[in-house]
Amino acid sequence: MSIIETKNLTYTYPGGTKPSIKDVSIKIEKGEFVLITGPSGCGKTTLCRCFNALIPNFYQGELEGEVTVIGLKVAEHQIYEMAKHVGLVFQNPENQLFALSVEKDVAFGLENLGVPREEMRKRVDSALNLTGIYDLRERAPHELSGGQQQRVAIASVLAMQPEVIVLDEPTSFLDPLGAKRIFEVIYDLNRKLGVTVVLVEHRLDLTAKYANHIVIMDDGRIVLDGEPRKILSSEEARLIGVGIPKPTRLYQILQKDRVSLSNTIPLSSDEMATMLREVLKS
């Protein structure tokens, strides 16, 4: 069974004139690294909010269709019940940290759930270690850099030991190196702990190489859904204007020029360089 499944999901925000997502049906399998992308306003964020019951419980509005997460029908559960299974990390790190020390922030969710102190201590420390911020645990979140703050936000959902972590453009306020570290942390969680990752991101050139499932949305609908190499090299993806990674573009251009390249479409400059070395050598 899929870990997340939506069936014909259509949702309109209260006061909205047209639905923000229309007839969305996707399946996300356990352990996948899913990349959701598409132009601004295409409904990516709205879809994420459906995964932990923020829609419809927090936002109200009109929801049709069905979302199941780990076999639970989301519409029938409270946000705090879903929070144990689906952790959401938002775009702006500043507005998702409330406490005056890092470890207190990481513990916030566990305190809310009433987890006993000894257990909480263990889980907090492990989350801090996994995100590489153990040394910052006594600092105040607002004294940290954006990248460090975002790692605190990730640790704070990680402490609740969710099966799925959903990250909504977590690096748009960070510099490239800070962003890279965040993606590496996420990738590690996915690979080592088997956490299912759903990442919403514009910058495919930085993230495509981590994903094994990509979903492209446009105007509230899912337009492409499948294996990243196939999807990103498709003509449709280019026409939607999602910003195909440059190495992939170069591959496509060279193929049109009838340069004989291998069939695995590259997603990163490393892959492309390796492929080109083969061609240049022969």
Binding site: N52, L54, N57, F58, Q78, I79, Y80, E81, A83, K84, G87, L88, F90, N95, Q96, F98, E103, K104, A107, F108, G109, L110, E111, N112, L113, G114, V115, P116, R117, M120, R121, V124, S156, V157, M160
Partner: peptide
């Protein structure tokens, strides 16, 4: 963000 981190899940909140 608070809602997403189980705000209000239980009356007997614990403390780190």
């Amino acid at each position: 963000a608070m809602e997403s981190r189980a705000w209000g899940a239980t009356e007997s909140r614990t403390n780190l």
